[in-house]
Design a protein around this nucleic acid. Structure first.
Length: 886
RNA sequence: GGACUCAUAGCUCAGUUGGUUAGAGUGCUACAUUGACAUUGUAGAGGUCAGAGGUUCGAAUCCUCUUGGGUCCACCA
């Protein structure tokens, strides 16, 4: 007879198990079809892995992502779907480049310019490769059943072709344009940034109120006097009586030696009550000012350069850093008596997400994607958009979510999504980075060429900028499936079934994918978006190096095993909400993993013949009937939960069933009832399948130990049965006594040689004659399960409040001292009925009243009718319950 | 400034469309344990469901307000 070790040791199994899976090649759906595991005509289920950045190690957030996706993927694979989970990594241009630059500087003291573009890129590629290998290994550690044969990289040749193709198409549709306009600039990173790459931080700042010069009629307020060197207008609210008369006048003034030509403009955006009600407009160095300037046709004067210093346009301040210039200007203003006020305020400043420096706004010649311009969508599979219809990118993004073609889970994020789109500005896609997809545009003198390849002829120079990393990630769902190659078979997996990712990149990535895919293919990228939360430490803080509260998934896997780590991330967390994680929680699930192992161990000891392929056996006792029904019950609950993306609920219930019902009840009963081999084999078989998506390693290990080396649980068919709810919701039980509630302590006694000795303690819940089963119905039946030959026999047991019965050849007694008063229960029900009855009467007569029905608004009448119906149903239910107790 | 979200046992969270006495896990306490499992079992303590008002026959659940966390968006210059 086979026997398992006393305790489960994850380290002994995990690596080998993953290797076995990998060697079997069943992660690849093509192989599954080829070997007959999956039907070629089965419906596809596909997820593309949100590619981790090649910047280092995986953290708990990645672990959570992998666990959630793997649980779905394994479930669908077992269900028989054509299941593809496609892995990849992201070059993460700005993040990776920044990291390598830092590393280079620390290790060799060199900057990227010392190396030159080519050599530097070689360094980055080397780093990316190493980082990639680490990441892949960590994914494998987590047990992720990814199809590695299809692995992709956002910067490889195939993806590059996709990027160039889309760029060209957008350019042809005139959705991409080049313009000299104000952009976000990171001095430290020496690159432009998109609006989303900016983090607003609160800072102490000083608000200066001053006059440009003696003879200028307004005072204005600013936190950044140095930018005033580039002012070209003063804006006031057109309703402001103080300033109305000046609107449209132009003043030539001298601002500390700088000649300014200031036009007075009227703009609603100016608040009359803030500051002095007059706003110095710096079109080149402020986004709002830029927008205002566009409206009023103002000139841009760039006084701050890419190096963060005042440019030559800044006259005598040229060459000073922004901070130096500010100090100098303030000092001069003070000296000349132009500074009226200097106050401390708290100001929001934009800082670079990656580089951490304060972002300068300055004008640059850049490439943009126009999100508002209409274009013709040739082929459309989008509900509500016809082939050839004119739409804008914004409209496409809105439509697919509005019409529920894409469903966001949890739903509330749809609101934030729409809000984001409403405020979306044109997307600046060029970056002055070296690492990334170089923009497929070539210049020669005044000529500009956009294409897939460099144009023929000499003298063409390619744009040195690269594309925003999200431009290529936006194509991810289809660039990974072979597009733009014609008739690529993998496109059968598109649109993908689910996009599972953190809510923190809803805008960065999810929205961009929707934009890029609907535009390029006229199709949605995915049907559902499942957003998970951030993994935080046990006190709810973000995990970070500086706080030292990082829980490393690899450490946890080493200590408690992968399955425990996965469970800790899956259970007790809901979509869209952050999850708090503690080592204790993981340890708890390690205990459960071991429990499952030992449950299997015990069952195995009682199984004579291990059969992989087994049919549902016939129940021989009430206990058997109960466990088999419970098993199907729990399976259908798991399936429902999966359909609703409620993995936590599925797992928790499965655990409660396994531990509470199966281990603590049925297996105990099986000790007194004999001949369980067949049924135990069936239960073990089923329970391992149900657990497999959650805990792939331990279940596979047990499976192999039980059924032999050649069997692979991962590709076993998910158990099938037709769930009939009526089977479970109501069971009629014929017992000789009426009602017993809360048998607090149930003592099983075995009579041997006229000696009665207590053996086990078990607890049970309410049951009675023809009971309508409530929440704890499983336990009720379980209590009854052993009552094959039940009899009430106080005399026989000689103990008061005890009933006895025969089970498995033993005489058994139940202690009923904790049983609840039947009268009490009746009284409670009666009270409730008395509570509702008058209401139902009143409501009925109200609705019988013609005057009310005819005169009241229809909706009100309907509402009243609905309420009555509800109350009536409830009343009926209560009456039935009461009756059953009579 | 505009939103969104959360508040339930010491801690982490469930609680389906309002309807029995609000539940788990974990921690704590007590007892048990040659039994598949001390990574175990049985039980116990612990909650005016943040506060106030409203709707309702009935509210943890729906509405309003207040308070206190969290998050996102937005350059009040």
């Amino acid at each position: 007879m086979r026997e398992l070790e006393k305790a489960y040791d994850p380290k002994k199994y995990e690596n080998d198990t993953y290797k076995r899976w990998e060697n079997s090649e069943f992660f690849n759906p093509d192989i599954c079809i080829e070997k007959g595991v999956t039907d070629a005509k089965a419906k596809p289920f596909s997820i593309v892995l949100p590619p981790p950045n090649v910047t280092g190690n995986l953290h708990m957030g990645h672990a959570a992502m992998l666990a959630i996706q793997d649980v779905m993927v394994r479930y669908h694979r077992m269900k028989g779907d054509k299941t593809l989970w496609l892995p990849g990594t992201d070059h993460a241009a700005i993040a990776t480049q920044a990291k390598v630059e830092k590393k280079l500087l620390e290790e060799t003291g060199q900057s990227k310019h010392d190396l030159g573009r080519e050599k530097f890129l070689a360094e980055v590629n080397k780093f990316a490769k190493e980082s990639h290998d680490t990441i892949v290994n960590q994914c494998k550690k987590m047990g992720a059943s990814l199809d590695w044969s299809r692995e992709a990289f956002t910067l490889d040749a195939k993806r590059n072709l996709a990027v160039r193709t889309v760029f060209k198409k957008m350019s042809d549709d005139e959705l991409i344009y080049r313009k000299f306009r104000a952009v976000n600039w990171s001095t430290k990173g020496q690159s432009t940034l998109s609006d989303d790459e900016i983090v607003h931080l609160e800072r102490q700042a000083k608000l200066y109120t001053f006059k440009y010069s003696e003879n200028f009629p307004f005072t204005i307020a600013t936190t950044r006097p140095e930018t005033k060197l580039g002012d070209t207008a003063v804006a006031v609210n057109p309703k402001d009586k103080r300033y109305k008369k000046y609107i449209d006048k132009v003043f030539d003034i001298d601002f500390l030696g700088q000649s300014l030509k200031l036009k007075i403009i009227g703009d609603e955006a100016v608040e009359i009550d803030f500051g002095t009600g007059a706003l110095g407009v710096t079109p080149a160095h402020s986004m709002t000012d830029y927008e205002m300037a566009q409206k009023h046709n103002l000139e841009l004067i760039k006084v701050i350069g890419e190096d963060g210093k005042i440019s030559n346009e800044g006259g005598k301040f040229a060459g000073l850093s922004v901070v130096e210039a500010r100090a100098k200007i303030v000092a001069e203003l003070k000296e000349k008596g132009l500074l009226e006020k200097e106050e401390d305020i708290i100001q929001n400043v934009g800082t670079s997400d990656r580089f951490g420096d304060v972002v300068e706004v300055l004008p640059k010649l850049q490439w943009f994607v126009d999100v508002n311009k209409k274009f013709k969508l040739e082929k459309s599979k989008i509900d509500g958009v016809k082939d050839g219809q004119e739409v804008s990118l914004k409209e496409l993004m809105q439509t697919v979510v509005k019409n529920k073609q894409i469903e966001i889970i949890p739903e509330r994020f749809e609101k934030t999504y729409f809000h984001w789109i409403d405020n979306l500005r044109d997307w600046c896609i060029s970056r002055q980075l070296w690492y990334g997809h170089q923009i497929p545009v070539w210049y020669k003198n005044e000529e500009i060429f956009v294409g897939l390849e460099a144009p023929a002829g000499d003298g063409w120079v390619q744009d040195s900028d690269t594309l925003d990393t999200w431009f290529s990630s936006g194509l991810w769902t289809f660039s990974t499936l072979g597009w733009p190659e014609e008739n690529t078979p993998d496109m059968q997996y598109h649109p993908t079934s689910v996009m599972e990712t953190g809510y923190d990149i809803l805008f960065f990535w999810v929205a961009r994918m929707i934009l890029m895919t609907t535009y390029t293919l006229g199709e949605i990228p995915f049907k559902k978006v499942y957003l998970h939360g951030l993994v935080r430490d046990e006190t709810g803080k973000k995990m970070s190096k500086s706080l030292g509260n990082i829980i490393d998934p690899l450490d946890m896997i080493e200590k408690y095993g992968t399955d425990a780590t996965r469970l800790s991330l899956l259970l007790g967390s809901t979509s869209g909400n952050d999850m708090k994680l503690s080592e204790e929680k993981i340890a708890g699930f390690r205990n459960f993993t071991n429990k499952l192992w030992n449950i299997s161990r015990f069952m195995l000891l009682n199984i004579d013949e291990q059969k992989v392929d087994c049919k549902k056996p016939k129940a021989k006792t009430l206990a058997d009937k109960w466990i088999l029904e419970s098993l199907e019950n729990i399976q259908s609950l798991v399936e429902d939960s999966f359909a609703n993306f409620n993995f936590s609920f599925a797992g928790e219930n499965l655990r409660d069933f396994t531990w509470g019902d199966l281990a603590d009840w049925y297996l105990e009963i099986s000790k007194v009832e004999s001949d369980k081999s067949e049924i135990l084999n069936y239960i073990l078989n089923t329970i391992l399948k149900l657990w497999h998506p959650f805990m792939p390693f331990v279940t596979e290990a047990i499976w192999t130990e039980v059924y032999g080396e050649n069997e692979i649980l991962m590709i076993e068919k998910w158990p099938s049965f037709v769930h009939k709810p009526s089977d479970f919701e109501r069971t009629d039980i014929n017992v000789d006594f009426l009602a017993i509630k809360d048998i607090v302590e149930q003592i099983r006694m075995i009579r041997s040689e006229n000696k009665i000795e207590p053996v086990k303690k078990i607890n049970a819940h309410i049951f009675g004659k023809n009971v309508e089963l409530v929440k704890d119905n499983n336990k009720i039946i379980s209590a009854l399960a052993r009552l094959d030959n039940l009899y009430v026999n106080n005399e026989k047991s000689g103990v008061e409040n005890m009933v006895g019965f025969v089970a498995g050849g033993y005489e058994v007694y139940l202690d009923l001292s904790g049983a609840v008063d039947l009268e009490k229960e009746k009284a409670r029900l009666q009270k409730e009925i008395q509570n509702i009855e008058p209401y139902v009467k009143a409501q009925t007569s109200k609705l019988a009243n013609k005057g009310f029905v005819d005169n009241a608004p229809k909706a009100v009448v309907e509402e009243e009718k609905k309420k009555l119906a509800e109350a009536e149903t409830k009343l009926e239910k209560l009456k039935k319950q009461l009756e059953s107790l009579m």
